[in-house]
Design a protein around this nucleic acid. Structure first.
Length: 425
RNA sequence: GGAUGGGUGGCCGAGCGGCCGAAGGCGCUCCCCUGCUAAGGGAGUAUACCCGAAAGGGUAUCGAGGGUUCGAAUCCCUCCCCAUCCGCCA
Protein backbone atom coordinates (compact mmCIF):
# COMPACT_ATOMS: atom_id res chain seq x y z
CA UNK A 1 0.00 0.00 0.00
CA UNK A 2 1.39 3.32 -1.02
CA UNK A 3 1.40 6.51 0.91
CA UNK A 4 -0.54 9.03 -1.12
CA UNK A 5 1.86 11.69 0.09
CA UNK A 6 4.72 9.75 -1.42
CA UNK A 7 2.83 9.52 -4.71
CA UNK A 8 2.29 13.27 -4.70
CA UNK A 9 6.02 13.76 -4.48
CA UNK A 10 7.03 10.88 -6.75
CA UNK A 11 4.34 10.28 -9.35
CA UNK A 12 6.84 9.33 -12.05
CA UNK A 13 8.54 6.83 -9.73
CA UNK A 14 5.21 5.08 -9.14
CA UNK A 15 4.36 4.96 -12.82
CA UNK A 16 7.81 3.79 -13.74
CA UNK A 17 7.62 1.02 -11.15
CA UNK A 18 4.20 -0.07 -12.32
CA UNK A 19 5.35 -0.08 -15.91
CA UNK A 20 8.29 -2.31 -15.07
CA UNK A 21 5.79 -4.66 -13.47
CA UNK A 22 3.70 -4.67 -16.57
CA UNK A 23 0.94 -2.69 -14.93
CA UNK A 24 -0.74 0.38 -16.28
CA UNK A 25 0.55 3.65 -14.84
CA UNK A 26 -2.02 5.45 -12.76
CA UNK A 27 -0.38 8.26 -10.82
CA UNK A 28 -2.38 10.89 -12.70
CA UNK A 29 -5.63 9.15 -11.90
CA UNK A 30 -4.72 8.78 -8.23
CA UNK A 31 -3.63 12.39 -7.95
CA UNK A 32 -6.89 13.50 -9.54
CA UNK A 33 -8.82 11.59 -6.92
CA UNK A 34 -6.56 12.93 -4.21
CA UNK A 35 -7.00 16.48 -5.41
CA UNK A 36 -10.73 16.09 -5.68
CA UNK A 37 -10.95 14.70 -2.18
CA UNK A 38 -8.85 17.46 -0.71
CA UNK A 39 -10.88 20.08 -2.49
CA UNK A 40 -14.03 18.59 -1.01
CA UNK A 41 -12.43 18.57 2.40
CA UNK A 42 -11.68 22.24 2.14
CA UNK A 43 -15.20 23.15 1.09
CA UNK A 44 -16.60 20.91 3.80
CA UNK A 45 -14.37 22.47 6.37
CA UNK A 46 -15.60 25.96 5.62
CA UNK A 47 -19.22 24.89 5.80
CA UNK A 48 -18.65 23.14 9.08
CA UNK A 49 -16.84 26.08 10.54
CA UNK A 50 -19.81 28.30 9.80
CA UNK A 51 -22.20 25.72 11.21
CA UNK A 52 -20.19 25.41 14.41
CA UNK A 53 -20.02 29.16 14.86
CA UNK A 54 -23.72 29.53 14.22
CA UNK A 55 -24.52 26.78 16.70
CA UNK A 56 -22.55 28.53 19.35
CA UNK A 57 -24.35 31.75 18.59
CA UNK A 58 -27.65 29.95 18.90
CA UNK A 59 -26.69 28.66 22.30
CA UNK A 60 -25.68 32.15 23.41
CA UNK A 61 -28.82 33.74 21.99
CA UNK A 62 -31.06 31.25 23.71
CA UNK A 63 -29.30 31.79 26.97
CA UNK A 64 -30.04 35.51 26.68
CA UNK A 65 -33.62 34.89 25.68
CA UNK A 66 -33.06 36.32 22.20
CA UNK A 67 -34.59 35.04 19.00
CA UNK A 68 -32.41 32.54 17.14
CA UNK A 69 -34.76 31.75 14.28
CA UNK A 70 -32.63 33.19 11.49
CA UNK A 71 -29.54 31.36 12.73
CA UNK A 72 -31.42 28.12 13.00
CA UNK A 73 -32.60 28.43 9.42
CA UNK A 74 -29.07 29.01 8.32
CA UNK A 75 -27.85 25.95 10.14
CA UNK A 76 -30.63 23.87 8.64
CA UNK A 77 -29.58 24.71 5.11
CA UNK A 78 -25.91 24.24 5.97
CA UNK A 79 -26.73 20.79 7.26
CA UNK A 80 -28.07 19.64 3.93
CA UNK A 81 -25.09 21.01 2.12
CA UNK A 82 -22.72 19.38 4.60
CA UNK A 83 -24.23 15.95 4.37
CA UNK A 84 -24.13 16.05 0.58
CA UNK A 85 -20.50 17.07 0.68
CA UNK A 86 -19.72 14.42 3.26
CA UNK A 87 -21.19 11.74 1.08
CA UNK A 88 -19.15 12.86 -1.87
CA UNK A 89 -15.99 13.16 0.17
CA UNK A 90 -16.49 9.66 1.56
CA UNK A 91 -17.04 7.98 -1.79
CA UNK A 92 -14.07 9.79 -3.28
CA UNK A 93 -11.91 8.71 -0.37
CA UNK A 94 -13.08 5.14 -0.65
CA UNK A 95 -12.39 5.07 -4.35
CA UNK A 96 -8.88 6.29 -3.70
CA UNK A 97 -8.29 3.75 -0.94
CA UNK A 98 -9.60 0.90 -3.06
CA UNK A 99 -7.36 1.92 -5.92
CA UNK A 100 -4.33 2.12 -3.65
CA UNK A 101 -5.06 -1.24 -2.01
CA UNK A 102 -5.08 -2.92 -5.40
CA UNK A 103 -1.65 -1.68 -6.48
CA UNK A 104 1.31 -4.04 -6.23
CA UNK A 105 4.56 -2.93 -4.67
CA UNK A 106 7.02 -1.41 -7.09
CA UNK A 107 10.24 -3.27 -7.75
CA UNK A 108 13.67 -2.38 -6.49
CA UNK A 109 15.79 -0.72 -9.23
CA UNK A 110 18.07 -3.75 -9.47
CA UNK A 111 15.27 -6.18 -10.19
CA UNK A 112 15.46 -7.45 -13.78
CA UNK A 113 12.54 -6.39 -15.92
CA UNK A 114 10.65 -9.18 -17.63
CA UNK A 115 7.29 -10.77 -18.17
CA UNK A 116 7.81 -14.01 -16.31
CA UNK A 117 10.31 -16.41 -14.78
CA UNK A 118 12.32 -16.58 -17.99
CA UNK A 119 13.70 -13.17 -17.09
CA UNK A 120 14.83 -14.24 -13.64
CA UNK A 121 18.49 -13.68 -12.99
CA UNK A 122 20.92 -16.25 -11.66
CA UNK A 123 22.59 -14.84 -8.57
CA UNK A 124 24.72 -17.81 -7.55
CA UNK A 125 24.63 -21.55 -7.40
CA UNK A 126 25.94 -23.97 -4.84
CA UNK A 127 27.19 -27.49 -5.67
CA UNK A 128 26.85 -28.82 -9.16
CA UNK A 129 24.07 -31.31 -9.90
CA UNK A 130 25.46 -34.75 -9.04
CA UNK A 131 26.01 -37.42 -11.67
CA UNK A 132 24.23 -40.68 -10.90
CA UNK A 133 25.57 -44.07 -12.01
CA UNK A 134 21.97 -45.06 -12.71
CA UNK A 135 18.89 -43.28 -13.95
CA UNK A 136 17.53 -41.35 -10.96
CA UNK A 137 13.82 -41.61 -10.29
CA UNK A 138 11.51 -38.84 -9.25
CA UNK A 139 10.21 -38.53 -5.71
CA UNK A 140 6.86 -40.06 -6.53
CA UNK A 141 8.42 -43.23 -7.84
CA UNK A 142 10.82 -43.39 -4.92
CA UNK A 143 8.16 -42.77 -2.32
CA UNK A 144 5.67 -45.20 -3.77
CA UNK A 145 8.33 -47.87 -4.21
CA UNK A 146 9.21 -47.43 -0.56
CA UNK A 147 5.53 -47.94 0.18
CA UNK A 148 5.58 -44.76 2.26
CA UNK A 149 3.91 -42.24 -0.03
CA UNK A 150 0.27 -42.87 -0.84
CA UNK A 151 -1.60 -40.59 -3.21
CA UNK A 152 -4.44 -42.99 -3.90
CA UNK A 153 -5.72 -43.25 -0.39
CA UNK A 154 -5.24 -39.51 0.10
CA UNK A 155 -7.37 -38.86 -2.98
CA UNK A 156 -10.05 -41.21 -1.72
CA UNK A 157 -10.67 -39.15 1.38
CA UNK A 158 -9.55 -35.68 0.31
CA UNK A 159 -9.30 -35.49 -3.47
CA UNK A 160 -6.44 -34.45 -5.69
CA UNK A 161 -3.40 -32.59 -4.41
CA UNK A 162 -3.17 -34.40 -1.11
CA UNK A 163 -0.97 -37.23 -0.01
CA UNK A 164 -0.33 -39.56 2.86
CA UNK A 165 3.17 -39.98 4.17
CA UNK A 166 3.93 -42.98 6.29
CA UNK A 167 6.55 -44.46 8.52
CA UNK A 168 10.06 -43.26 7.87
CA UNK A 169 8.92 -40.62 5.38
CA UNK A 170 6.44 -39.14 7.81
CA UNK A 171 9.20 -39.11 10.35
CA UNK A 172 11.69 -37.60 7.95
CA UNK A 173 9.27 -34.78 7.22
CA UNK A 174 9.05 -34.08 10.92
CA UNK A 175 12.83 -34.38 11.25
CA UNK A 176 13.32 -31.82 8.48
CA UNK A 177 11.02 -29.33 10.14
CA UNK A 178 12.70 -29.77 13.47
CA UNK A 179 16.17 -29.49 12.02
CA UNK A 180 15.23 -26.26 10.26
CA UNK A 181 13.60 -24.69 13.29
CA UNK A 182 16.53 -25.61 15.49
CA UNK A 183 18.93 -24.09 13.00
CA UNK A 184 17.04 -20.81 12.73
CA UNK A 185 16.40 -20.42 16.41
CA UNK A 186 19.71 -21.64 17.82
CA UNK A 187 21.99 -20.37 15.10
CA UNK A 188 20.33 -17.38 13.52
CA UNK A 189 18.47 -15.81 16.41
CA UNK A 190 14.90 -16.29 15.25
CA UNK A 191 12.23 -16.68 17.90
CA UNK A 192 10.12 -19.77 17.42
CA UNK A 193 6.42 -19.07 17.18
CA UNK A 194 3.39 -21.30 17.00
CA UNK A 195 0.74 -19.05 15.51
CA UNK A 196 -2.93 -19.52 14.53
CA UNK A 197 -3.63 -21.14 11.20
CA UNK A 198 -7.00 -19.44 10.87
CA UNK A 199 -7.06 -15.69 10.52
CA UNK A 200 -9.47 -12.90 9.82
CA UNK A 201 -9.74 -10.70 6.75
CA UNK A 202 -7.70 -7.89 8.18
CA UNK A 203 -4.64 -10.09 8.71
CA UNK A 204 -4.68 -11.16 5.06
CA UNK A 205 -5.32 -7.62 3.97
CA UNK A 206 -2.24 -6.58 5.93
CA UNK A 207 0.09 -8.96 4.14
CA UNK A 208 -1.53 -8.28 0.77
CA UNK A 209 -3.40 -11.52 -0.06
CA UNK A 210 -6.66 -9.62 0.24
CA UNK A 211 -8.53 -8.02 -1.38
CA UNK A 212 -7.10 -9.23 -4.69
CA UNK A 213 -6.27 -12.90 -4.19
CA UNK A 214 -9.17 -14.38 -2.27
CA UNK A 215 -9.56 -17.12 -4.85
CA UNK A 216 -6.19 -18.60 -3.87
CA UNK A 217 -7.36 -19.17 -0.31
CA UNK A 218 -9.64 -21.48 1.60
CA UNK A 219 -12.29 -19.82 3.71
CA UNK A 220 -14.19 -21.33 6.61
CA UNK A 221 -17.95 -21.16 7.01
CA UNK A 222 -17.61 -18.62 9.81
CA UNK A 223 -15.67 -16.28 7.55
CA UNK A 224 -12.12 -17.00 8.65
CA UNK A 225 -9.35 -18.04 6.29
CA UNK A 226 -6.80 -20.82 6.37
CA UNK A 227 -3.35 -19.31 6.15
CA UNK A 228 -1.52 -19.87 2.86
CA UNK A 229 1.77 -19.30 4.67
CA UNK A 230 2.94 -18.48 8.19
CA UNK A 231 4.05 -15.15 6.79
CA UNK A 232 0.51 -13.98 7.46
CA UNK A 233 0.32 -14.57 11.22
CA UNK A 234 4.01 -13.79 11.79
CA UNK A 235 4.00 -10.46 9.98
CA UNK A 236 0.74 -9.55 11.68
CA UNK A 237 2.22 -10.15 15.11
CA UNK A 238 2.97 -6.44 15.33
CA UNK A 239 0.03 -5.07 13.38
CA UNK A 240 -1.34 -1.88 14.91
CA UNK A 241 1.69 -1.68 17.20
CA UNK A 242 4.40 0.86 17.79
CA UNK A 243 7.73 -0.76 18.56
CA UNK A 244 10.77 0.81 20.15
CA UNK A 245 13.71 1.31 17.83
CA UNK A 246 15.71 -0.89 20.20
CA UNK A 247 13.28 -3.74 19.57
CA UNK A 248 14.33 -3.96 15.94
CA UNK A 249 14.95 -6.22 14.23
CA UNK A 250 12.41 -8.80 15.34
CA UNK A 251 12.98 -12.20 13.85
CA UNK A 252 10.34 -14.93 13.94
CA UNK A 253 10.32 -18.52 12.72
CA UNK A 254 7.32 -20.80 12.57
CA UNK A 255 6.45 -24.18 11.17
CA UNK A 256 2.83 -24.32 10.11
CA UNK A 257 0.49 -26.02 7.74
CA UNK A 258 -0.12 -23.90 4.68
CA UNK A 259 -3.32 -24.15 2.67
CA UNK A 260 -3.72 -23.06 -0.91
CA UNK A 261 -6.58 -23.56 -3.28
CA UNK A 262 -4.24 -23.59 -6.30
CA UNK A 263 -7.13 -22.13 -8.23
CA UNK A 264 -4.99 -20.93 -11.10
CA UNK A 265 -2.80 -24.02 -11.28
CA UNK A 266 -5.15 -26.48 -12.96
CA UNK A 267 -3.17 -29.16 -14.72
CA UNK A 268 0.13 -27.95 -13.30
CA UNK A 269 2.29 -30.33 -11.24
CA UNK A 270 -0.61 -32.71 -10.84
CA UNK A 271 1.62 -35.65 -10.11
CA UNK A 272 3.51 -35.97 -6.87
CA UNK A 273 3.73 -33.73 -3.86
CA UNK A 274 5.21 -30.66 -5.50
CA UNK A 275 1.97 -28.71 -5.47
CA UNK A 276 -0.47 -29.65 -2.73
CA UNK A 277 -3.46 -28.02 -1.13
CA UNK A 278 -1.85 -28.57 2.25
CA UNK A 279 1.84 -28.56 3.07
CA UNK A 280 4.23 -27.78 5.87
CA UNK A 281 6.55 -24.86 5.70
CA UNK A 282 9.07 -23.31 8.00
CA UNK A 283 8.72 -19.59 7.53
CA UNK A 284 10.97 -16.73 8.55
CA UNK A 285 9.76 -13.19 9.10
CA UNK A 286 11.87 -10.17 9.99
CA UNK A 287 10.65 -6.80 11.04
CA UNK A 288 13.35 -4.20 10.61
CA UNK A 289 14.35 -0.59 10.59
CA UNK A 290 13.81 0.86 7.09
CA UNK A 291 17.54 1.34 6.63
CA UNK A 292 18.25 -2.29 7.45
CA UNK A 293 15.84 -4.25 5.31
CA UNK A 294 18.12 -4.61 2.29
CA UNK A 295 20.87 -6.26 4.30
CA UNK A 296 18.29 -8.31 6.21
CA UNK A 297 17.09 -9.81 2.95
CA UNK A 298 20.61 -11.02 2.19
CA UNK A 299 20.90 -12.42 5.69
CA UNK A 300 17.55 -14.15 5.51
CA UNK A 301 18.34 -15.71 2.17
CA UNK A 302 21.57 -16.94 3.68
CA UNK A 303 19.65 -18.57 6.53
CA UNK A 304 17.54 -20.49 4.06
CA UNK A 305 20.58 -21.46 2.02
CA UNK A 306 22.27 -22.80 5.11
CA UNK A 307 19.46 -25.31 5.48
CA UNK A 308 20.24 -26.71 2.05
CA UNK A 309 23.99 -26.60 2.55
CA UNK A 310 23.70 -28.65 5.70
CA UNK A 311 21.38 -31.06 3.99
CA UNK A 312 23.86 -31.33 1.14
CA UNK A 313 21.44 -30.45 -1.62
CA UNK A 314 22.57 -28.53 -4.72
CA UNK A 315 20.72 -25.30 -5.31
CA UNK A 316 20.83 -21.99 -7.05
CA UNK A 317 19.59 -18.55 -6.08
CA UNK A 318 17.57 -16.54 -8.55
CA UNK A 319 16.54 -12.93 -8.38
CA UNK A 320 12.97 -12.83 -9.61
CA UNK A 321 12.08 -10.58 -12.48
CA UNK A 322 9.44 -7.91 -12.20
CA UNK A 323 6.91 -10.21 -13.84
CA UNK A 324 7.49 -13.12 -11.49
CA UNK A 325 7.49 -11.30 -8.16
CA UNK A 326 4.63 -11.44 -5.70
CA UNK A 327 2.19 -8.61 -5.14
CA UNK A 328 3.79 -7.24 -1.97
CA UNK A 329 7.45 -7.73 -2.86
CA UNK A 330 9.98 -5.12 -3.73
CA UNK A 331 12.72 -7.66 -4.31
CA UNK A 332 12.64 -11.44 -4.15
CA UNK A 333 15.21 -14.23 -4.19
CA UNK A 334 14.00 -17.68 -4.99
CA UNK A 335 16.10 -20.61 -3.95
CA UNK A 336 15.74 -23.56 -6.28
CA UNK A 337 16.94 -27.03 -5.45
CA UNK A 338 18.17 -29.50 -7.99
CA UNK A 339 15.86 -32.48 -8.43
CA UNK A 340 17.75 -35.27 -10.23
CA UNK A 341 14.62 -37.29 -10.92
CA UNK A 342 12.81 -34.39 -12.52
CA UNK A 343 16.08 -33.12 -13.99
CA UNK A 344 15.25 -29.57 -13.08
CA UNK A 345 15.57 -26.91 -10.44
CA UNK A 346 12.46 -26.33 -8.34
CA UNK A 347 11.65 -23.49 -6.02
CA UNK A 348 12.01 -24.44 -2.37
CA UNK A 349 12.21 -21.01 -0.82
CA UNK A 350 11.22 -17.49 -1.68
CA UNK A 351 12.67 -14.60 0.29
CA UNK A 352 11.21 -11.14 -0.14
CA UNK A 353 11.69 -7.67 1.12
CA UNK A 354 8.33 -5.92 1.06
CA UNK A 355 9.72 -2.64 2.35
CA UNK A 356 6.94 -0.70 4.06
CA UNK A 357 4.26 -2.09 1.75
CA UNK A 358 2.79 -4.56 4.23
CA UNK A 359 3.73 -2.55 7.29
CA UNK A 360 1.69 0.38 6.10
CA UNK A 361 -1.31 -1.87 5.54
CA UNK A 362 -0.86 -3.40 8.98
CA UNK A 363 0.01 -0.11 10.61
CA UNK A 364 3.22 -1.46 12.15
CA UNK A 365 5.42 1.36 13.24
CA UNK A 366 8.37 2.14 15.45
CA UNK A 367 9.53 5.13 17.37
CA UNK A 368 12.89 6.30 16.09
CA UNK A 369 15.24 7.41 18.83
CA UNK A 370 15.73 11.17 18.84
CA UNK A 371 13.11 12.15 16.28
CA UNK A 372 9.54 12.73 17.21
CA UNK A 373 6.64 10.81 15.77
CA UNK A 374 6.68 7.33 14.34
CA UNK A 375 7.94 5.66 11.19
CA UNK A 376 6.76 2.60 9.35
CA UNK A 377 8.86 -0.54 9.79
CA UNK A 378 9.93 -2.80 6.97
CA UNK A 379 8.90 -6.44 6.78
CA UNK A 380 10.56 -9.40 5.12
CA UNK A 381 9.51 -12.98 4.72
CA UNK A 382 11.19 -16.09 3.49
CA UNK A 383 10.70 -19.82 3.50
CA UNK A 384 13.31 -21.50 5.57
CA UNK A 385 12.33 -23.79 3.81
CA UNK A 386 9.25 -25.55 2.41
CA UNK A 387 9.27 -28.84 4.28
CA UNK A 388 7.42 -31.00 1.77
CA UNK A 389 9.64 -29.89 -1.06
CA UNK A 390 12.72 -30.41 1.10
CA UNK A 391 11.61 -34.00 1.56
CA UNK A 392 11.33 -34.34 -2.20
CA UNK A 393 14.81 -32.92 -2.63
CA UNK A 394 16.26 -35.32 -0.09
CA UNK A 395 14.57 -38.31 -1.71
CA UNK A 396 15.74 -37.47 -5.17
CA UNK A 397 19.27 -36.46 -4.23
CA UNK A 398 19.92 -39.26 -1.74
CA UNK A 399 18.35 -42.14 -3.65
CA UNK A 400 20.35 -45.25 -4.41
CA UNK A 401 20.08 -47.75 -7.22
CA UNK A 402 18.39 -50.33 -5.00
CA UNK A 403 15.53 -47.95 -4.20
CA UNK A 404 16.73 -47.09 -0.73
CA UNK A 405 17.36 -43.56 0.43
CA UNK A 406 20.24 -42.43 2.58
CA UNK A 407 19.29 -40.17 5.47
CA UNK A 408 21.33 -36.94 5.41
CA UNK A 409 23.67 -36.82 8.37
CA UNK A 410 22.10 -33.73 9.94
CA UNK A 411 18.73 -35.46 10.04
CA UNK A 412 19.90 -38.70 11.60
CA UNK A 413 19.74 -37.44 15.20
CA UNK A 414 16.13 -36.46 14.56
CA UNK A 415 15.35 -39.93 13.24
CA UNK A 416 16.64 -42.04 16.06
CA UNK A 417 19.90 -42.63 14.25
CA UNK A 418 18.35 -44.10 11.11
CA UNK A 419 20.96 -43.98 8.35
CA UNK A 420 19.03 -45.35 5.44
CA UNK A 421 15.40 -45.91 4.50
CA UNK A 422 14.79 -49.16 2.72
CA UNK A 423 11.74 -50.47 0.90
CA UNK A 424 9.09 -52.41 2.76
CA UNK A 425 8.92 -55.94 1.56
C1' G B 1 -25.52 -21.97 21.82
C1' G B 2 -27.31 -18.76 26.37
C1' A B 3 -26.22 -14.26 29.74
C1' U B 4 -23.65 -9.92 30.94
C1' G B 5 -19.84 -5.94 30.65
C1' G B 6 -16.79 -3.10 27.54
C1' G B 7 -14.17 -0.50 23.10
C1' U B 8 -11.30 7.15 24.64
C1' G B 9 -4.45 9.82 22.98
C1' G B 10 2.32 5.67 23.13
C1' C B 11 0.15 3.02 27.74
C1' C B 12 -3.37 3.20 32.06
C1' G B 13 -7.65 5.88 33.01
C1' A B 14 -11.62 10.16 33.83
C1' G B 15 -15.35 12.36 31.06
C1' C B 16 -23.36 16.82 33.60
C1' G B 17 -25.37 17.22 25.35
C1' G B 18 -22.29 23.15 24.28
C1' C B 19 -16.37 26.02 27.77
C1' C B 20 -13.60 18.25 25.57
C1' G B 21 -8.86 16.73 21.22
C1' A B 22 -10.42 15.42 25.64
C1' A B 23 -8.87 15.69 33.46
C1' G B 24 -5.28 12.76 36.05
C1' G B 25 -1.31 9.25 36.10
C1' C B 26 2.68 6.63 33.54
C1' G B 27 6.14 6.81 29.69
C1' C B 28 9.04 9.96 26.47
C1' U B 29 11.74 14.85 25.05
C1' C B 30 13.98 19.44 26.60
C1' C B 31 15.39 22.70 30.64
C1' C B 32 16.47 23.75 35.91
C1' C B 33 18.11 22.07 40.64
C1' U B 34 20.97 18.44 42.89
C1' G B 35 27.22 15.90 43.25
C1' C B 36 26.07 10.39 43.80
C1' U B 37 23.85 4.45 41.89
C1' A B 38 17.58 8.12 44.85
C1' A B 39 14.76 12.25 44.05
C1' G B 40 12.60 17.16 43.09
C1' G B 41 10.79 21.44 39.94
C1' G B 42 9.23 23.54 35.04
C1' A B 43 7.80 23.14 29.88
C1' G B 44 6.45 20.10 25.92
C1' U B 45 4.48 15.44 24.00
C1' A B 46 -1.79 12.28 18.58
C1' U B 47 -3.02 11.95 13.33
C1' A B 48 -4.95 13.75 8.56
C1' C B 49 -6.30 17.83 5.64
C1' C B 50 -6.80 23.31 4.64
C1' C B 51 -4.92 28.61 5.21
C1' G B 52 -0.07 30.88 6.53
C1' A B 53 6.96 32.54 5.01
C1' A B 54 6.53 31.56 10.16
C1' A B 55 4.19 32.16 14.67
C1' G B 56 -0.35 30.59 14.55
C1' G B 57 -5.41 29.54 13.03
C1' G B 58 -9.29 26.23 11.13
C1' U B 59 -11.87 21.31 10.07
C1' A B 60 -12.24 16.20 11.14
C1' U B 61 -11.03 11.92 14.10
C1' C B 62 -13.00 9.23 21.42
C1' G B 63 -14.13 0.86 17.39
C1' A B 64 -17.16 1.57 12.27
C1' G B 65 -21.61 3.31 9.96
C1' G B 66 -26.37 5.58 10.41
C1' G B 67 -29.96 8.56 13.49
C1' U B 68 -31.89 12.33 17.21
C1' U B 69 -30.40 17.63 18.17
C1' C B 70 -29.20 24.37 16.57
C1' G B 71 -24.99 21.41 18.83
C1' A B 72 -22.81 14.42 20.58
C1' A B 73 -16.97 11.08 23.17
C1' U B 74 -21.60 11.96 26.00
C1' C B 75 -28.65 9.93 23.82
C1' C B 76 -30.82 6.02 20.03
C1' C B 77 -30.09 2.03 16.14
C1' U B 78 -27.03 -1.44 13.26
C1' C B 79 -22.45 -3.77 12.61
C1' C B 80 -17.36 -5.14 14.02
C1' C B 81 -14.13 -6.33 17.92
C1' C B 82 -12.65 -7.55 23.14
C1' A B 83 -13.61 -9.60 28.01
C1' U B 84 -16.29 -12.45 31.76
C1' C B 85 -19.91 -16.27 33.36
C1' C B 86 -22.95 -20.72 32.07
C1' G B 87 -23.51 -24.92 28.67
C1' C B 88 -20.79 -28.07 25.19
C1' C B 89 -16.05 -29.84 23.66
C1' A B 90 -10.32 -31.32 22.04
Amino acid sequence: MFDIKWIRDNPEALDDGLRRRGEAPCAAELLDLDEKRRGLQTTLQEARQRRNDASREIGAAKKNGEDAGALMDEVASLKERISALEEEERTTGEALEARLAGLPNIPDPEVPVGEDESANQLVRSHDAPPVFPFTPRDHTAIGEALGLMDFERAARMSGARFNVLRGALARMERALAQFMLDLHTEHFGYEEVNPPALVRDNALYGTGQLPKFAEDLFQTTDGRWLIPTAEVPLANLHAEEILDADDLPRRYAAMTWCFRSEAGAAGKDTRGMIRQHQFNKVELVSITHPDRSAEELERMTGCAETVLQRLGIPYRVMMLSTGDMGFAARRTYDIEVWLPGAETYREISSCSNTGDFQARRMNSRFRPGGEKGTRTVHTLNGSGVAVGRALIAVLENYQQSDGSVIVPQVLQPYMGGTEVITPHV
